[in-house]
């Protein structure tokens, strides 16, 4: 039964990367559609809308970070997997969930907010700073989830 521990821990790392990465891909995709619409009409706004499009991409990076720390913790990166019991494996899985789930949902929401904010840039490019604040607000919750995931994963004794 002790082999299951490492499976759960690896599942945690996979969930963090998979969910947060999927969220970012969807979010960046939504914002990308809006950005393409604006650039079709006004290519001079490319730089501004590109920044907006990239905002929902951070959740994927957070997921990757948590996944990396988890893999390092369970020794998979060093070549020798640690001997992890089921309870510890499940704890690592639970620790990875905040960034996985919050990353998925916040990236999609951020993508939609970015698309709306790209509308502001299309009509009033001088309001770029204000427009960027709206999608940036969504980021707060992804950062909170990232913090908890990192703190929890690093606190678990293997």
């Amino acid at each position: 039964m002790s082999e299951l521990g490492i499976v759960y821990a690896l599942l945690g790392a996979a969930a963090a990367v998979l969910l947060a990465g999927t969220g970012s891909a969807i979010g960046v995709g939504i914002a990308g559609q809006a950005a393409s619409g604006v650039v079709t009409e006004d290519p001079s706004k490319f730089a501004k809308v590109l920044i907006m499009q990239l905002l929902p991409g951070t959740q994927g990076i957070y997921g990757l970070l948590v996944g990396f720390i988890t893999l390092s913790k369970i020794g998979l990166l060093g070549g020798g997997a640690a001997d992890i019991d089921v309870k510890t494996g499940l704890m690592i899985l639970a620790a990875c969930l905040p960034i996985g789930i919050v990353g998925l949902l916040s990236a999609i929401s951020q993508g939609k907010t970015s698309a709306a904010a790209i509308g502001i840039v299309a009509k009033k490019p001088e309001q770029f700073g204000k427009a960027m604040l709206f999608p940036a607000m969504v980021e707060t919750y992804a950062i909170l989830a990232l913090l908890i995931s990192i703190l929890a994963v690093t606190a678990i004794q293997v």
Partner: peptide
């Protein structure tokens, strides 16, 4: 993703509304 099918079109319209 059907509900997002107008995202591109709406953003283009936003840019066109300027004129």
């Amino acid at each position: 993703m059907a509900k997002n099918q107008y995202t591109y079109a709406v953003a283009r319209i936003r840019a066109m509304e300027v004129s």
